[in-house]
Write a protein that binds this DNA or RNA. Structure first.
Lengths: 119, 119
DNA sequence: ATAAAGTATGTAGTATACTTCATACTTTTC
DNA sequence: GAAAAGTATGAAGTATACTACATACTTTAT
């Protein structure tokens, strides 16, 4: 069980940002049962996983609310299996679209580089 | 030569957003020489190209200032050939990174879908 | 020729995603 | 046991990327 400082060091995400993600409902720490002197929050390994996923997803242009949908489908067992599948399969489609867009950009830029080189 | 309305219709980007991009230096319209009654701006086909590029690049998480760098390297002949190449090659690397991240996310989500299906 | 639609300009407002600050308490270190 | 470092909370501030509004002028349609 990790405290927020360790979480930050493992992921490179600032503590303030992690707190912001927690407030936004993307991750959740828990109070250690039995500890009454403080109200420190502890985080499991799943939270590190989630934070890494957030980093990746943000880097490819997903918003926090889109990311939250995926994380909820992933970890919350509350919603129906079908609803979980729907969210995840939609994300797969969107990921595939982004890959295609990136490949198109790559081709464009490579053409441009060739033009510059041929001058 | 197109007016802003046509530009908007061809790309699906709102007029206000196109104006914002122009103010941000990503695209540029020109006054028709000889026309003195108005100050309407006209746009060439390169602007449509640029707007489509902006749409794609934004969809995969590039910021407007990153996009501006690429567009400048692309169209502005002012900067040195080497500087142009540097910008474009860096973008190629970043695009490749994003593709890898998307593929990693794809795998993760597919694993998750399999787990849900197997319940 | 007049109303409707288009264009330009400037300013203000909004949403997202942080980031900083102030305060207060707890734990660790020397 | 006192200072330094860590944690929690709430509120305010910032950056990016729009989005809407008000005004004024121009062009197009009827």
């Amino acid at each position: 069980m990790k405290l927020i400082n360790q979480l930050s060091k493992e992921t490179g995400i600032p503590i303030a940002t992690i707190r912001f993600y927690e407030k936004s409902g993307l991750i959740k720490g828990e109070k250690k049962p039995g500890v009454t002197t403080n109200n420190y929050l502890y985080y499991g390994d799943d939270v590190v996983e989630k934070l890494r996923f957030i980093q990746m997803a943000k880097a490819v242009g997903f918003t926090l609310s889109e990311i939250k949908e995926v994380i909820d489908a992933w970890y919350l067992k509350k919603i129906s299996r079908k609803a979980q599948m729907d969210v995840l399969e939609l994300k797969l489609v969107q990921i595939e679209e982004k890959i295609q867009e990136l490949k198109a950009m790559k081709r464009q830029i490579m053409t441009c580089i060739k033009n510059i080189a041929a001058r």
